[in-house]
Write a protein that binds this DNA or RNA. Structure first.
Lengths: 298, 298
DNA sequence: ACGATTGATAGGTTTTCCCTATGGATCTCC
DNA sequence: GGAGATCCATAGGGAAAACCTATCAATCGT
């Protein structure tokens, strides 16, 4: 049995006429008759009563019409699904990220992606960078956003964006009166820092300070970046934070650019080299395009 | 999309090899490659990763494999159903019959038919002959078994069997001592009869008596033929009954043949001339064949 | 009764499909 | 490390199919 024969039969059955069905199928009438005959021969059953004046369905024909429609519908649905999967519009996407990145630019990136592929089931796994690498390797996640490129050979990294480092100080602090601050000026300040063991950003900041000739005096070390603004406002000192978190806090804290600016903190999209999912490829493609545009606009 | 392409793809996907799949399909490898390419082009999606060493499924290919199998299964199931309907092995069969005929030879006929077509849903509508004709005409039933041929022009009748008339008498009755009885001898007996208004058989018996030169003295008239044996045993008189019911009663009643025998009561298969159902045609064909054999054997 | 319409059939052409032969790439074995 | 084997892709020719036009037989409506 052939899908074409099914389509042809349905047309004849619906039109109750070979001639009309042939017209609908953009076909001449003789091959249509032949196909129906072939179908009947294969099924060993008459499907249509034909007189030279009208065409009627037999019981077998009625069944064939119903089943044929169901088959065509299923075929169409299968085509749609396969096409969607192939285009990366259906599937799952597991992302790894640290909280600070998630609350930063990643959120808007995810929103942009969701508009393009609303049927993709996205899950963000918020965890430390080292765990993210492991998750990528054991295929728990597809993509990670990490500051810095991991050394693993099976992973590919692409620059997502560069993040400026800014100084967060309490409103009353003497540096809050300045328009910009040099890094070396922070040598004498108390610093609130993230735990360098679990945060790439913390390590990056530390290296910047070392490059500027001092080791920051740590007044407080926290695990969760969200705690930093509260501590700054409470007068524990100053902190070097990614620019993106400046959006979220305002009242008691001032943000000041560092000039001359240290090398920007680079955030990378990391994924397996052998990644096959079109969802993942689509996401990466969209992300690079989207972030490229944004960079120019900003 | 074409069923052949689906079959071809499934073979390749299952074998994880074009060469092996081609062998399984009794096909050379090149056209197989071409069909898969055509399928991929139509779906706008790669379904397979091919290196010159191994073939793997993409996510879209996995989906295609699942959906393709489902499609083929549905197609096969549709073919089976249509074939069965066309062969009259699936469907419904509504029969009309009076109780006496149902309890007579019809029961064994239905049993024989059920063996041939166990999936056909049979329903017997037990009702008076006039209602059976109406049911046939308004397509409530497909076939009726009736004594005598109806006059309606849209109905066809075929002789099913001829039923001998036998005399039922109480064991102690003087006629019970006889080996055979002439119809005229019953002129002086009390008769238990069925209601002639609802029973063709009753009318037929009455005509036989009239032909023999007497009108039966009615001691009791009943509507349900099943009541007759009880009344005979209770001494209400004698009754002329179809031979077939002789099987069911024994103890208090004797059955004696009528000689010379009156014209046998003919039972007909009646059905619409324009009947299309293969189930009905099958049943009629089997019935005539089966009853023909039985008649010769009996 | 005659013209119009319907589905089936016949014959020829185009398209599709399949086969053999071959090429490029990778793996295996010596 | 190189030769042979194996795998999938491509090219070109021949066979099979699908389709078209023309025509026939039967039926309906005028």
């Amino acid at each position: 049995m052939d899908l074409r024969q099914v389509r042809y039969f349905i047309a004849v059955a619906e039109e109750r006429s070979f001639t009309a069905a042939a017209r609908r199928l953009n076909l001449s009438q003789p091959p249509l008759s032949q196909h129906i005959q072939a179908l009947e021969a294969e099924l060993g059953t008459q499907l249509l009563y034909r007189t030279s004046r009208k065409v009627e369905l037999t019981q077998a024909g009625e069944a064939m019409l119903l089943r044929g429609r169901a088959i065509l519908q299923q075929v169409k649905s299968a085509e749609d699904e396969v096409r969607s999967i192939g285009a990366g519009l259906i599937g799952t996407l597991d992302l790894g990220a640290t909280g600070s990145i998630l609350r930063g630019r990643l959120a808007e990136l995810l929103a942009a992606y969701r508009e393009v592929a609303p049927l993709v089931r996205m899950t963000v796994h918020e965890q430390a960078p080292a765990l993210q690498i492991a998750a990528l390797l054991n295929r728990t996640t597809n993509i990670s956003l990490i500051r810095g490129v991991p050394g693993e050979r099976d992973l590919t990294s692409k620059l997502a964006w560069r993040e400026e480092v800014v100084l967060a100080v309490p409103r009353g602090h003497h540096l809050a009166k300045r328009k910009r601050v040099a890094l070396a000026e922070l040598a004498s300040e108390d610093h609130v820092i993230l735990d360098p063991d679990s945060s790439d950003f913390a390590r990056y900041v530390q290296r910047c300070c070392v490059d500027a000739g001092f080791l920051p005096k740590v007044s407080q070390q926290v695990v969760d970046a969200q705690s930093i603004p509260s501590l700054i406002a409470a007068g524990f000192g100053v902190a070097l934070v990614p620019q993106s978190i400046a959006r979220f806090t305002t009242a008691d804290i001032a943000f000041r650019p560092i000039r001359p600016s240290p090398p920007a903190a680079d955030v990378f999209l990391v994924f397996r080299e052998d990644e096959t999912s079109m969802v993942v490829h689509n996401f990466i493609k969209l992300a690079l395009r989207y972030l490229g545009q944004r960079k120019k606009l900003g």
